[in-house]
Design a protein around this nucleic acid. Structure first.
Ligand SMILES: [Mn+2]
Ligand SMILES: [Mn+2]
Ligand SMILES: [Zn+2]
Ligand SMILES: [Zn+2]
Lengths: 136, 136
DNA sequence: TATAACTTTGCAACCCGGTTGCACTTATTA
DNA sequence: TAATAAGTGCAACCGGGTTGCAAAGTTATA
């Protein structure tokens, strides 16, 4: 089932360094999306730039995707195993206005929209604001 | 038909100062959303803080609404006459990845979504990325 | 193995949008 | 008119994001 961090990195063509495995571990343990500032706090002594570049590498290799819920720093969450970050993989995100956590609702695909004539679609971001089950 | 800026401000309970009428004029002439940095450039000599507070006032009084398309500074666009920024008034936004303009698609309401159990909805942001009719 | 080439990391500095404190001006009210 | 409140301009600050550069670590080559 759940494979080693190292394997997960290799599968996405990311050289598994110590730092990267640690970051992946944090992301895996996390049930909700995490921002760079939050990630920084998870480490006793880690450099912001390194973490930043780690996230960028992960994102480029589609190990994680970014979520801008509009309420602060950009957050990141693990992609599903089979994810290629294409339009098919797009899902709704939920931001809780009470606890400020941001959830991936993987089971809810973003609804399709009929754009005006001559507008073409590349991607969609849909963020629902509200109260999450934990805060209710 | 199109009423005076002064009237439009009064209707939203905003005291019509010279500055505010100028900003409203810019927003009205604009077919797409505009950011604070962009707004600054529209004036020969205007203070960022004043413009900032003007936008905040307009937003609080629901004369304009903000749009975070995730590609830079927050943008602002006029609300429709009858808008009260409630869930009913929510519409899809479109960001053109070529010209970087952001459009209000007032005629396209945000689709409804079925949230997981015990998640409640307060608001929704939906931004479609793609190429606009002008850039096509 | 020794060396060269490339990659990753850490540190510092910077950029920029957003925000606030404060004094000054302008409008409103008593 | 005097007192009060609202709006404006300037400067400084904050925080997330980003980059340059040198040191350390890794991989490839002879
Ligand atoms: Mn997600
Ligand atoms: Mn809009
Ligand atoms: Zn919550
Ligand atoms: Zn365009």
């Amino acid at each position: 089932m759940s494979e080693k961090p190292e394997q997960k990195l290799r599968k996405r063509n990311i050289k598994p360094t110590a730092m990267r495995e640690l970051v992946l571990k944090v992301l895996t343990d996390q049930k909700t999306a995490i921002s760079l500032p939050e990630l920084e706090q998870k480490f006793e002594k880690a450099d912001k730039a390194t973490l930043y570049r780690t996230l960028k590498t992960f994102e480029k290799q589609k190990l994680i995707h970014s979520i801008d819920d509009g309420t602060g720093p950009v957050k990141y969450a693990l992609c599903l195993e089979e994810c290629s970050c294409s339009v098919n993989d797009l899902h709704v995100h939920f931001h809780c206005t009470k606890c400020n956590k941001t959830y991936c609702l993987h089971e809810i695909p973003v609804p399709s929209v009929n754009l005006p004539k001559n507008f073409s679609l590349e991607s969609v971001d849909m963020v629902v604001q509200g109260i999450c089950a934990n805060c209710k």
